[in-house]
Nucleic acid binder design. Structure first.
Length: 276
DNA sequence: TTTCTTGTTTTCAG
DNA sequence: ACTGAAAACAAGAA
């Protein structure tokens, strides 16, 4: 599922493929993908030039001339790719952006969970979802000290805290499990019970892991591909996610899968011990 | 038919 | 007003 490294890989691909191109027409095939008025979305985007493509957490931000930004979230299975305009539409294609070069940028989403919304760039930060977003883990804004202070204030388990995007942006279920294994932290440990050295390690591992995953082009578990339709390679580097019943690569203990805050959670019962 | 999947938003209790 | 927990919701695959 697209988490920060996958979204960043998509972003980089899109930047190469569609930056500085002009949208000549938009066709919405499945309207629920669009948040807000669909006519308005289509009308305002037509004739716009894609000036840049940024990312914040797991959100893609397409910046257009005229002070407009399209905020796009891929959720579980959203994908962008390019086709010649005369190619037949593939299954699960929900939005088609025709470009000024006989090509089309197509949004495809088997689950139809993804969403896109057109907003004024100036109002971007007020958007629900973006307002509460924590620091970007791969920027200098993600400081160990701030992280420690925020954790000390939280009386909830570290796993759901990593998923809620306020401590740090961009982690999802896969990388949350991975960084906790790397840091030898039991997923149900309360944030305010974490020791200074654990927080330090966790902070470092989040940065290292996401950096490595971006370098590998992300993780392809089921169907993820980037804008060039390439799979990621980081699934070969995973230590716990999807490895229930297999031996821990550090100690040989069988990896367990439990449910934490309604999410599948993988961990090593030996390396990641419950604290008393 | 039931279960499983995840990220975000909403709801509710305290 | 805030926090945390849980439910809701999106929809298809197996």
């Amino acid at each position: 599922m697209p988490e920060l490294p996958e979204v960043e890989t998509v972003r980089r691909g899109l930047e190469k493929l569609v930056k500085n191109k002009v949208i000549t027409n938009v066709k919405v095939i499945y309207p629920k993908i669009i948040v807000g008025d669909q006519q308005d979305f289509v009308q305002k985007l037509s004739g716009r030039k894609i000036k840049s493509i940024k990312r914040r957490g797991k959100f893609l931000l397409f910046n257009f001339n005229g002070g407009l930004t399209m905020v796009s979230h891929l959720r579980m299975e959203g994908k962008y790719f390019i086709r010649q305009a005369d190619q037949p539409l593939e299954k699960h294609t929900h939005v088609v952006f025709s470009l000024n070069d006989e090509k089309q940028l197509r949004y495809n989403d088997v689950r139809k969970f993804g969403r896109m919304q057109l907003v004024l760039t100036a109002n971007l930060k007020q958007l629900p979802g973006l307002t509460k977003l924590g620091p970007e883990p791969l920027s200098t804004n993600f400081k160990q000290k701030d992280f420690a202070l925020a954790l000390a204030k939280k009386n909830k388990a570290i796993k759901p805290a990593l998923l809620d995007q306020t401590l740090v942006a961009g982690l999802g279920n896969i990388y949350a499990d991975e960084v906790l294994w790397l840091s030898r932290i039991y997923p149900l440990t309360k944030c305010n019970q974490l020791e200074t050295n654990e927080i330090k390690l966790l902070h470092t591992k989040i940065i290292q892991e996401l950096t490595a995953a971006v370098k590998a082009g992300g993780t392809t578990i089921r169907t993820y591909t980037d804008a060039f339709e390439n799979s990621g390679k980081f699934q070969f580097e995973l230590h716990v996610y999807g490895r229930e019943g297999q031996p821990c690569q550090r100690c040989g203990t069988i990896i367990k899968k439990i449910r934490v805050a309604q999410r599948g959670t993988h961990f090593c019962p030996q390396c990641q011990q419950v604290k008393l």
